[in-house]
Design a protein around this nucleic acid. Structure first.
Lengths: 232, 232
DNA sequence: ACTGCTGTTTGCGCCAGAGCAAACTGCCGC
DNA sequence: GCGGCAGTTTGCTCTGGCGCAAACAGCAGT
């Protein structure tokens, strides 16, 4: 199957790129499906390709030598990921797991320098992606240093919801399956604490929980929790 | 004063660059001194330049809206910093403060795209710098999620010492002034806890403390602490 | 409908480490 | 040589949230 330039027409990574430019980018890409829970690439593996998520949601997971897992971020549709080549790395620093069935564009690393030269705006967009991830990660360090678990979880939920929220009549729902354990691994806490807090928030009418489901019913109220300016 | 190409001859950022190439890079740079405790740039300020540290040590500090400070990293001699332009950012995400008297090379942002085109290895080195900082920061998030304060502080000390250590007859000394408070802000804890642990380690003969001074007398022993495999 | 599995909730005890307070000390400037 | 201050040490108390354990509930497969 040949890739159509309309596939990537709306993506920020290709903004300001004309039709032929898009064709040039796509010429070296390959599209493939990844079923839920399969790995797109694996931490520590030789980085041979870089990727763009066309459809679905991907979880980026780091595992420590002792076996602890941490979720570094979720990748949304239209985002580049696994761009080790742009950072001059030869292995992937984390694993990428499909949170739902996904469609992914794959380029061989060899295409990178070529694309960089011929389509400079593509490379610039990649560097900006890395820059904003550095930014986000540093913000996370700050959060973990200065804020309590309750604020951190509230922030994490608001972040996910704003990036991958789907409006329903109940409120805004995270549109991929996410467990309490996942939320714990994003915020550096335990599933027990996450469960307790979500239950408490449910009683206050801020969120609604379910099996692998979270719906934020009162984003503004949750924001108040996140900023730690609660009543009393 | 004109800049001599020998200034940057040994730096990794300019490895694989010939003499004229180095001249081209230096032509647009300006050298200046920053006295101890002065700011090279300020968090949130318009990013107009990028920098390279020729001599000294620089502390990169982020301040939260509530006034909490976190030390993101220390910059060593020969490193690029404040390269917001390479990430497509228009403001500095943190402040840079001279930990000792420093000598800094400054380029206007306008020089970036020019240098990138004419001296590709320079740009590549910058991107690699950003990549490894992202890497480090993510590692820090993992540490904060999974390890205890004692291990985190031990790791932080070992990291500083390996990057900015100076050998003395006592052991390896951090060769810039660093307070317990600074160490606390690097590891997300309090100066009290840092002080207690350093005192304990001093009793065990692992380190030697002093006013704004830390000497690691037994790096291997400290490593054992960092890996959390202590006797008993 | 039954069974098993995976994810969730909740109770209880405990402790690492934060917060507060106070005393101490090396060093710099006058 | 003498304050005075910035940085450090140390004691005590209190608590957020972790660890453990057990019960519970939605969902998939047979």
């Amino acid at each position: 199957m040949t890739l159509d330039r309309s596939l990537i027409a709306g993506l920020p990574a290709f903004a300001g790129l004309d039709g032929p430019g898009r064709d040039a980018v796509l010429a070296r890409a390959q599209s493939s499906r990844f079923p839920k829970d399969s790995e797109v690439f694996s931490q520590g593996a030789e980085a041979a390709s870089f990727f763009l998520l066309l459809a679905g949601h991907i979880r980026v997971v780091r595992t420590s030598p002792e076996g602890h897992q941490v979720i570094a971020r979720y990748i949304n549709e239209g985002e580049l990921f696994g761009i080790a080549v742009a950072m001059g790395r030869s292995t992937y620093p984390a694993s990428a797991v499909a949170a739902v069935d996904c469609v992914v564009l794959t380029w061989p690393n060899a295409a990178w320098s070529d694309l960089q030269a011929r389509v400079p705006s593509f490379a610039a967009s990649a560097y900006q992606t890395i820059g904003s991830r550095l930014q986000e990660t540093q913000a996370q360090v700050m959060e973990m240093s200065t804020q309590q678990v309750e604020q951190r979880i509230a922030h994490a939920l608001l972040r996910i919801v704003s990036q991958s929220g789907r409006k329903t009549d109940q409120g805004i729902e995270i549109d991929f399956p996410i467990t309490r354990q996942d939320i714990a691994e994003m915020t550096g806490t335990t599933l027990h604490t996450v469960s307790r807090l979500l239950s408490a928030w449910e009683d206050e009418g801020l969120v609604k929980g379910g099996r692998q489901r979270v719906v934020v019913t009162d984003p503004h109220g949750l924001m108040v929790v996140a900023e730690n300016r609660r009543r009393k």
